[in-house]
Amino acid sequence: MPSNVEVKAVVSNPEDFAGVAAQLSQSEGAIIRQHDTFFHCSQGRLKLRDFMDGTGQLIFYERPDSDGPKLSRYSISPTSDPSSLRMVLSDALGVKGEVRKERRLFLVGQTRIHLDSVEGLGHYMELEVVMRPEQTVEEGQQVAHGLMEQLGVSEESLVTGAYMDLILKGVKET
């Protein structure tokens, strides 16, 4: 199963963060609109990501709920009909909740830097260090820590869990 090391944090100044991420990636980043529907499942998390253009991905992942860099294992299946798949999964499993966001994606080496504007929550960043088969979790964590430092992400701004967890807890916009 593919894996990555992930970090999530609150971003207090999205313009400054985007500027540093753009410098690191030498790009302005790609804008991606996403509507994620989370379904009840017995282990891990199952979500359908709708890209709002007729395409989507069914994603299953397992990741500890802790702050700082952590290993996430995932499986992804593309779909060309996310709305009918959402109906089937909703009937079969029930909907846990939904997350709508606009994501600005920057690529730096093996890392995907996301600047997310999440409806009802505010601005966050995610780092996804895509692990190579020969890499250890510790090596992925070192990459994440190095980028956190370059991006000015403090330990105090780190967040545990998924956006869905924050919404279910009633966390308000930052």
Rank of each mutant, 00 (worst) to 15 (best):
A92W: 05
I167S: 07
G161F: 07
Q34W: 08
P78N: 13
S72H: 11
R49P: 01
H40F: 10
L151I: 01
Y74K: 03
S12L: 12
D50G: 05
F39D: 00
Y61V: 03
L105I: 13
K101D: 03
Q57M: 13
V20W: 04
R45S: 12
A9S: 14
D81L: 07
V143W: 00
S117K: 09
E15V: 10
E138V: 06
S27R: 04
M1P: 05
E98H: 00
G94I: 07
V171N: 00
V129Y: 10
E128I: 11
E138S: 11
R103N: 12
R112L: 13
G97W: 00
L147N: 02
S90M: 03
M1T: 11
Q23A: 14
G29C: 05
M148S: 05
Q150R: 09
V5G: 02
V5N: 00
G161M: 11
S27M: 05
M1N: 08
V88N: 04
D67R: 13
R112D: 15
M87I: 15
C41M: 12
R73M: 03
K169E: 15
E128C: 10
L115D: 00
V159E: 12
G19H: 07
P64K: 02
A162I: 07
S3L: 02
P64M: 02
Q150Y: 01
G146P: 01
H40L: 07
V137S: 06
R33P: 06
Q26R: 15
S77L: 15
G120Y: 00
I32Y: 04
V129Q: 06
P2E: 05
E102L: 09
E134R: 07
I76C: 09
D67T: 14
L105D: 05
D67C: 12
Y74I: 04
L158K: 04
L158P: 04
T160R: 15
V11H: 02
H40K: 08
R49E: 06
L24D: 03
S75T: 09
F60Q: 05
Q142N: 12
R100I: 10
K169T: 13
